[in-house]
Design a binder for these strands. Structure first.
Length: 865
RNA sequence: GCGAAAGUGGCGGAAUUGGUAGACGCGCAGGAUUCAGGAUCCUGUGGGGUAACACCCGUGGGGGUUCGAUUCCCCCCUUUCGCACCA
């Protein structure tokens, strides 16, 4: 008679029900509080992976929970559909990027639907559709109008393997973020977005992001990299020129004994022209330039330089000081020239030692006297200014202000603020992206495509060879156009935009995914924005999350958006990892998921070396340690997949995959299923009204557990998204119900209570395992679908304890436990504590020094001696 | 090198404001059921110690504050992540 738990039948059934009822469709409803929960949209790579399952399960719990709490919940999904893999597939397999992408989207969509995720699919977007990317182009043109987009020739990061430019944010340790090839520099004409205009605001508003992890805020702050200091002019001797240096330590200017230039500095070669130094300088410049950026970065430590033969004047000391080229000075930061203060900067110190340049101490730390000859390292700390003309005797932080003011008065320079953040280069020499809506005319120069001619669509008839730059160059029909102004022959920009442009505003598009008059309907944008909860991987901490903030601010200044920050709360979920055993040399994986003793005999089939220890590594195709979510759903169903990923670890931490853990999650659902069906008829027969007072202490305790569970689950979801402990609490409550039911539920009173408890458990489980919860809800005889049922509330009356378990300590060690009525006072608790059997023997013969009483919890008896 | 986070049973992880360390799950052991295996159910499960208690030890290591520390402070070790000549 017992029906087995059949996840697939149940899941298919409820997915249909939800689809027919449009259970997750939303519209703007001013009568309800809105809640916008968003997970970072995926790249349509072909199949979903376990990281997606985790990300979207977390988001779905939040969405379903908030719906049950009465919020009008926007929970959309879409596709970050432009990008290189589609083009690579085209090159490798002869398919078209669009076809490949569309097929992947269709397949992954069914995969997501099988997980029972409660998206409003009517708002689905794909960034590769002209209806979407036309607004990339439109936004680009608005930026262009306001000088937020501009073109310049500059040295850019170039990935020779991907044959495209990379943004600074996309260069990781000198290598391409995607293919890990070493990145080189190339001089190219590129479009840039002026994100640096927003550097200060992007930095300042980080303080308002209290719902973001500190880690991400810190990373963004460091990335923006604000430095406050001064620019000082050092006149070049025998020339009209002056070297402009940037420093944050103008308080040490009296210790500047030389100046260092980057090899790319415009004066590097002119200073030594027609002098005996010319040859040596040229050789040095060539050598350093050719050593490549990666090498220059990694060869930290070895300072190298070359004297230019020229001198300049330190305006403060009036001294003539030499000008050097130095390998560690970067042209991209500051002015490409630095005043060198060897006594107070470690790099200058090493440089001065190597080239025997003078070292002059101008800051003395408190209670010490530094001597230049004795220094082993530069002193970079605080102190008092010495040998510093009129500033001698000032504390150095005060001196900073005074020196800066003084040099402005004298016209020797000015106060200055510098940022590490640089403008965002968005041109990409690839096909599968948004065409840049710009036309170049020999007569009229750079002409924007008129807005009513948007979108500029991608031509389909282009060859994909993987060679020779952008495929768009090959399409004559695309490339050759008329100038929108003079009608003469002109050519289109054949670059496409960085795909991070697409994802910089997609969260706004969801507010009105079909809107045809603007990127989004302003009224709807106003209703839904900002995103209340954003969920995704931490790898976007300075890429997507910074660009999206920039776009939101820029769109606000264009009068489109009305918020300055897109994401109020951010949850960065951890990676999905798996313990893997591999031969380090041959990359052989241990087969399956073997346990303890089984592992011991395993040897690499290539070299026969035994496997010693497993490593927990991120699941990835290249490491061959992935578990395919589709296999998992086929075997156990979506609810088990969801339950396991939510239960195994709190969302922000890495999750270690365990096949046994999955079994455990499945086992719990099976037990719950059997329990409900086994008692269904008995429970249906009892009076559903909850009794006010249970007749035994045991039953009253069970009722307390039920309500405590509701409270705990609510708080765990609400305050910190700790779904693992919420699920644990539900399991505990279920165990308590099972224990009671072992007696056969002979009394109606018992059955009523079990019914209350089981109903509560099923409702509480709905956000986590919506299919099985819905089915059980129906099986238990409830008419309405569970997705319409409000979140349960707990009763304070039911929570009230009748008796308290008080821990008794003697000198801080637990020696006994006593049970007292909840309403007794301190004196009686202490008396009983002292009288407790074990406690007595521990205080026997000793004088009681004091008694610490923590109400409702603990008594600590402190003895003398 | 700088910055941040973390270190708890055989494993994943609990312990929300300093108050019974190890919830929940996995694994393991014993038992029931079964021809057998699997599944299921029951019991036990930090280490030492004991016939059983008692008791002792125990949250990376060492100090400190406190009646009491996984929790707060100082020093050190390890791991992970981020930045890495930013003047």
């Amino acid at each position: 008679m017992e029906e087995r738990y059949q996840p697939h039948d149940i899941e298919t059934k409820w997915q249909h029900v939800w689809e027919e009822n449009h259970a997750s469709r939303v519209s703007e409803d001013p009568g309800k509080p809105k809640y916008y929960v968003l997970e970072m949209f995926p790249y349509p790579s072909g199949r979903i992976h376990m990281g997606h399952v985790r990300n979207y399960s977390i988001g779905d719990v939040v969405a379903r929970y908030k719906r049950m709490r009465g919020y009008n919940v926007l929970h959309p999904m879409g596709w970050d559909a432009f990008g290189l893999p589609a083009e690579n597939a085209a090159i490798e397999r002869g398919t078209h990027p669009e076809k490949w992408t569309q097929e992947n989207i269709l397949y992954m969509e069914t995969q997501l639907k099988r997980l029972g995720l409660s998206y409003d699919w009517e708002r689905e977007i794909a960034t590769c559709e002209p209806a979407y990317y036309r607004w990339n182009q439109w936004i680009f043109l608005q930026f262009y109008k306001r000088d937020l987009a501009y073109k310049k020739s500059s040295s850019v990061n170039w990935c020779p393997s991907c044959e495209t430019v990379l943004a600074n944010e996309q260069v990781i340790d000198g290598t391409c973020w995607r293919c890990e090839s070493p990145v080189s520099q190339k001089e190219l004409d590129q479009w840039f977005f002026r994100i640096t205009d927003y550097a200060e605001e992007l930095l300042r508003d980080l303080d308002s992001l209290t719902g973001w992890p500190d880690k991400v805020v810190t990373m963004q702050r460091n990335w923006i990299g604000k430095s406050v200091g001064a620019e000082i002019l050092f006149p070049v001797l025998g020339s009209e020129e002056a070297l402009r240096v940037f420093t944050t330590r103008q308080d040490t200017v009296y210790g500047a004994t030389f100046v260092s230039l980057a090899v790319e500095h415009p004066l590097a070669l002119t200073l030594c022209q027609d002098t005996p130094r010319e040859v040596a300088v040229k050789q040095f410049v060539e050598r350093i330039k050719n050593s490549g950026q990666a090498a220059r970065g990694s060869e930290e430590g070895e300072k190298e330089g070359c004297f230019t033969g020229a001198y300049c004047l330190n305006p403060f000391t009036g001294e003539k000081i030499p000008i050097y080229l130095a390998n560690f000075v970067l042209m991209e930061y500051g002015t490409g020239a630095v005043m060198a203060v060897p006594a107070h900067d470690q790099r200058d110190f090493e440089f001065a030692k190597k080239y025997r340049l003078p070292i002059r101490v101008v800051i003395q730390p408190k209670g010490e006297v530094l001597k230049a000859d004795d220094l082993a390292d530069a002193y970079v700390g605080e102190g008092v200014m010495v040998d510093s003309g009129p500033f001698t005797g000032l504390a150095n932080d005060e001196g900073k202000e005074k020196v800066a003011a003084y040099l402005e008065e004298r016209g020797w320079g000015k106060k200055a603020v510098r940022y590490r953040l640089r403008d965002w280069g968005i041109s990409r020499q690839r096909y599968w992206g948004t065409p840049i809506p710009i036309i170049y005319c020999k007569q009229c120069g750079i002409r924007p495509v008129p807005e009513d001619e948007l979108p500029v669509t991608l031509p389909r008839d282009v060859p994909f060879t993987g060679k020779g730059g952008s495929p768009l160059l090959e399409s004559k029909r695309f490339r050759e156009v008329e100038c929108p102004r003079c009608g003469g022959s002109a050519r289109r920009d054949t670059d496409t935009m960085d795909t991070f442009v697409d994802s910089s505003w997609y969260f706004l598009r969801y507010a009105s995914a079909d809107y045809a008059l603007a990127p989004f309907d302003p009224d709807k944008g106003r209703y839904w924005m900002a995103v209340d909860q954003y969920i995704g991987g931490v790898e976007h901490a300075v890429l997507h999350l910074l660009y999206a903030r920039f776009f939101t601010k820029a769109l606000r200044d264009l009068g489109l958006a009305h918020v300055g920050e897109p994401f109020l709360n951010l949850l960065t979920q951890g990676m999905v990892c798996k313990e893997t055993f591999r031969c380090p040399e041959h990359n052989w994986l241990l087969p399956g998921d073997l346990m303890g003793s089984e592992r011991e005999g395993w040897k690499c089939p290539e070299c026969k070396k035994p496997v010693e220890q497993g490593r927990v590594e991120k699941m990835s195709k290249s490491k061959k340690n992935i578990v395919d979510p589709e296999d998992l759903v086929n075997v156990y169903g979506a609810d088990t997949a969801r339950l396991f990923t939510l239960f195994a670890a709190p969302p922000e931490k890495d999750l270690e995959w365990s096949d046994q853990g999955v079994e455990g999650a499945y086992r719990f659902l099976t037990r719950l299923w059997r329990f409900a069906l086994q008692h269904r008829e008995r429970l249906a027969g009892v009076e559903s009204a909850v009794q006010k007072e249970q007749s035994t202490a045991e039953l009253r305790e069970l009722r307390r557990i039920i309500h405590r569970t509701i409270k705990k689950v609510t708080e765990d979801i609400e305050s910190r998204f700790h779904f693992n402990t919420a699920i644990a609490a539900i399991m505990e409550a279920f165990n308590a119900l099972s224990t009671l039911a072992q007696g056969g539920l002979k009394l109606d009173e018992e059955a009523v209570l079990v019914k209350e408890g089981l109903d509560a458990i099923v409702v509480l489980l709905f956000p986590f395992v919506p299919h099985v919860a819905s089915e059980l809800w129906e099986q238990l005889g409830h008419g309405e679908n569970l997705d319409r049922v409000p979140w349960p509330s707990y009763s304070l009356e039911a929570l009230a304890e009748e008796e308290l378990l008080i821990v008794v300590q003697v000198n801080g060690k637990v020696r006994g436990k006593i049970t007292v009525p909840a309403d007794v006072g301190r004196e009686r608790v202490e008396t009983e504590a002292v009288d407790a059997p074990k406690v007595k023997s521990f205080i026997h013969g000793k004088k009681i020094h004091k008694v610490v009483y923590v109400p409702r919890r603990l008594v600590n008896i402190v003895t003398e001696g």
